[in-house]
Structures are given as structure tokens and as C-alpha cells.
């Protein structure tokens, strides 16, 4: 189990390094998806399956869609289907594909019940998370909402001003 988690973690690191070294934004996004999936695999192997699901649904799902959307919007005007085709040549898929295969193989391997003592801890369910979020830690949820508000107001001010000047 330990070795598997380490393997998934190293996939995460390799993916993250590839994200920041790619020249084409689309390629970086491909690697970012793999990085997030591998991170989710690490979380699963640590027993935090709920966090892993959130990671996949929110980050690899929703936020990635936003990224792709923004990249599409930024290329507006100079878009050019041949260049897009060039970006998504099979070679670009190769690296993320290999990394994703490693993670997938690991997860399949984990499906078999592992030998050894049964885990003593009960898995954390959505019910538990909800109870502690809106029970003990309700004030933290409120503080996070203020953090989002601060980010929103700052971004709004800077963005509006920039649009006004140019």
C-alpha cells in the first residue's frame, strides 16, 4: 500500500513538473488533469475516498472545464483550426496517457482486497463531512466565505479598472 501511494505521488510530481514546463497551454492542461487524478489516487490510498471524489469532481471536472474555456476565449480571433490540430497531435497525448495508465493500473490493482489487517478506521462519509462543516466548523465556513468575498472584490476592482483604461 505504501509503495503504491508513493508511486501515485511520484506521478503527481512528474505531472506537475510537466505542467509548468510545457509551452502550449493545452498540453499543460492535459498534464494538469493527470496530476489531479493522481493526487486523487493518493488520497484514496490514504483512506480519504471522499476527498478524492471531491478532487475529481471539482478540480479535474469543473475547474478544468473553466481552464479550457478560458484558453479558448484567449485564442479568440487568431484561432486557426490547423494550429489546433497541430496542438493535439498524438504525440501530445502520449505523456499524459502513459501517466494516466499508471494511475489507472494502480487503482485496478487496489480493487482486489489487500491482504493484511483490516483497517481500524471507518471511512469518512459525506454525512460526517457535512456534520462537522456545519456543526463544529461552521465559523470556518463563514470565514472562507469572507475570503472568497475579498478575492471577488479585489478581482472586480482590478479587472474593471483595467478594462476602463484600455
Amino acid at each position: 500500500m505504501h509503495a503504491l501511494a508513493l508511486l501515485a505521488a511520484s506521478v503527481t510530481v512528474v505531472g506537475a513538473i510537466m505542467v509548468i514546463t510545457r509551452r502550449v497551454a493545452v498540453h499543460a492542461v492535459l498534464y494538469l488533469v493527470v496530476t489531479l487524478l493522481a493526487l486523487a489516487a493518493v488520497l484514496v490510498m490514504q483512506g480519504a475516498s471522499f476527498a478524492a471524489m471531491l478532487e475529481i469532481i471539482i478540480y479535474a471536472g469543473a475547474i478544468m472545464v473553466l481552464f479550457v474555456f478560458v484558453i479558448m476565449m484567449l485564442n479568440l480571433g487568431q484561432t486557426d483550426s490547423t494550429r489546433e490540430k497541430e496542438w493535439l497531435r498524438p504525440r501530445a497525448w502520449l505523456g499524459p496517457g502513459i501517466l494516466a495508465t499508471i494511475v489507472c493500473a494502480e487503482l485496478l490493482y487496489c480493487r482486489r482486497p489487500l491482504s493484511g489487517p483490516a483497517p481500524a478506521l471507518a471511512p469518512i462519509t459525506a454525512h460526517d463531512v457535512g456534520l462537522s462543516l456545519f456543526g463544529r466548523y461552521v465559523l470556518m465556513v463563514e470565514l472562507v466565505s469572507f475570503l472568497l468575498l475579498a478575492g471577488l472584490v479585489s478581482a472586480f476592482y482590478i479587472g474593471r479598472n483595467r478594462m476602463g483604461r484600455h
Binding site: L147, A150, G151, V153, S154, Y157, I158
Partner: peptide, 12 residues
Amino acid sequence: LGLEILGISLMG
């Protein structure tokens, strides 16, 4: 969280 609220508002 307090640190981040302070930091993000200072950024703005």
C-alpha cells in the same frame, strides 16, 4: 484563513 483574508484584501 485570517492570514489569507488579510493577504487577498491587501492584494486588492
